[in-house]
Design a protein around this nucleic acid. Structure first.
Lengths: 317, 317
DNA sequence: TCGGCATCAAAGCACAGCTTGGGCCCGCTC
DNA sequence: GAGCGGGCCCAAGCTGTGCTTTGATGCCGA
């Protein structure tokens, strides 16, 4: 109630846009009665609007004639703007329905490297086939970075992974599990572990290790701890191609997810399945509390559908 | 009241533009409370508008966060249109004030030939000096044609003339008298009437005449009838240059208004003032019932001012 | 743990604005 | 020329939109 210093060009002293729409009808029909009929109103209702508009603008807008009304120069000027406003309103509604009908819209996806190299492109292609108007953008990012993007509003959806045995500092996010990604032991050919099947991590107590990203390294450490040893980590790399090269060179062994090996398999290494080793969980993560846009929902569906075979495959396992 | 088949894309199912304006404020401030303050309202009022807008569009437009609201993709789309609408409203008001401030606008003037050749250009120049933004358009037309233009809405103002002794078939028009235009007898040099001064038309009973436009011809006939004779009209022309050429050639004498002689004076003719001859009345004529636009009023003023000396001159006469 | 600032919800009240019912004026038609 | 239809206006009345008030909740920063 205090006399706030108000902006001298506030929205408050704009012309009432509804009267503009009414005036556009008057201009279109050339009579108050015609406009009234178009609006489903009576004639005095329209007359009141026009009168108010003339009062507000301080201009005579129409001249009453025996057969309807004719616009003055000011009236023509105003009618042109009014017509533009109705066009805008139509365009606004059209744009919104384009968004809901997936004829337009943008969705920014973030995914970790091996997902980007395997099922993500197929999901995007599927979505693109269904909704060619969508603007789908992919950013490669490890889970922690992806969560940061989501929180900052720089991504709408993220393909992430996590391990049951690694604590997760995620803020509250909505997550949909896609599938379990089996962890495989990667060893050089003719390695003593290569021949065996169904071993567990305890068999590798004496090995030198090549670790991955911090999260994967934490998983390795935790898993090894579960088997009662501290892994002897000699090298580190995020890159699953580099990891395999290092293994092939005999610098150590590694634990890699099946997805990474599917993305790029070095023929010079061999893989060993581990007995009852916890897989990594691949999930879709959305920002908390903000409802997904139609485009985001469509991308979510595409990703869920594309990964359906992987859920089948790992379910019995 | 019957269920008229209504247009399937009527103005009635457009989004309420006032809500759009409110939403534009919400988008600008990023919070309902901020928008409310800008509008001079309370926060729930704004919240209601946004809710209604979301209901009408069927889209979630904003996400309520702990620190205000953030717009969804649909919200951004809508806000852009809303911003365009506020811009239109501002532009509409600006255009109207440009019209009233004479920074814009159009005025179409019609004037008879000798007026076009004398004071009309000066009046237009005066107006142009005062209001460079105006679009002033001149059409040369005799009074009857001018009145037709006014009635058809093809002219806003007309410079016309009329004679007291000639009946006027004008529909109702608003008229401002500018000045009296003295009628002069035009004779060849060394004509017997040339030497005399202060004669009246009766002195020219025996002359051959060159008549002008129908209206001027009617005036001549009526004036002659007042003096008891029927003029012997041999030639007719609208053009006052032609008239003087014919007079100079000795084909007859003529009655020309002073304005015509001021516009173009053939040195081979002489003029004689007539005693108590009714002048022609030069006036401004406007369309009936339609209020003049600011530009028309300004042109009217300019014409009145420019012709002030002529009123002075003829007043005592 | 508390205060500030944002949100939402429900109820009440005022005024905008549409309707009704009158009247006038013009132009067309019979 | 008179009747009629269709445009306009005015004044009064009532409905419903829409703003305010009041009260409660939730999250962040101190």
């Amino acid at each position: 109630m205090a006399g706030e210093r108000e902006s001298h060009d506030s929205v408050r002293d704009l012309l009432d846009p509804r009267r503009m729409l009414v005036f556009a009808e008057v201009a279109r029909f050339g009579s108050l009665a015609g406009a009234a009929q178009a609006l489903g109103w009576t004639q005095p209702a329209v007359a009141q609007h026009v009168r108010r508009l003339e009062r507000d603008t301080g201009c005579t807008l129409v001249v009453r004639t025996s057969r309807g009304v004719t616009l003055t120069e000011a009236g023509h000027s105003l009618a042109a703007h009014a017509e533009a406003i109705t066009a805008r309103l139509r365009a606004a509604r059209a744009d919104l329905s384009a968004l809901t009908d997936l004829r337009a819209g943008r969705v920014r996806l973030s995914a970790f490297p091996s997902a980007c190299a395997t099922f993500v492109p197929a999901a995007i292609a599927l979505l693109w086939e269904r909704a060619p108007g969508l603007d789908v953008r992919l950013t490669e990012a490890e889970p922690d970075e992806a969560r940061r993007l989501l929180a900052a509003g720089d991504a709408d959806l993220a393909v992430t992974f996590d391990y049951d045995n690694v604590p997760d500092a995620s803020t509250q996010t909505a997550r949909i599990k896609l599938f379990d990604d089996t962890m495989l032991l990667v060893v050089p050919p003719a390695h003593r572990l290569a021949a065996r099947s169904d071993i567990d991590l305890a068999a590798a107590t004496d090995q030198r290790w090549i670790a991955g990203c911090p999260r994967c390294r934490a998983h390795l450490t935790a898993a090894a701890a579960g088997c009662g040893f501290l892994p002897d980590i000699r090298h580190s790399t995020d890159d699953y191609v580099v990891t395999q090269t290092l293994v092939a060179a005999g610098l150590g062994i590694a634990l890699l997810p099946a997805l990474a090996l599917e993305a790029a398999r070095d023929p010079r290494v061999e893989t060993v399945e581990l007995h009852r080793h916890t897989p990594r969980r691949v999930s879709l993560t959305s920002p908390p509390d903000i409802p997904p846009s139609p485009a985001t929902r469509a991308l979510t569906s595409a990703l869920v559908e594309i990964t359906a075979p992987r859920r089948m495959r790992t379910l019995p396992g």
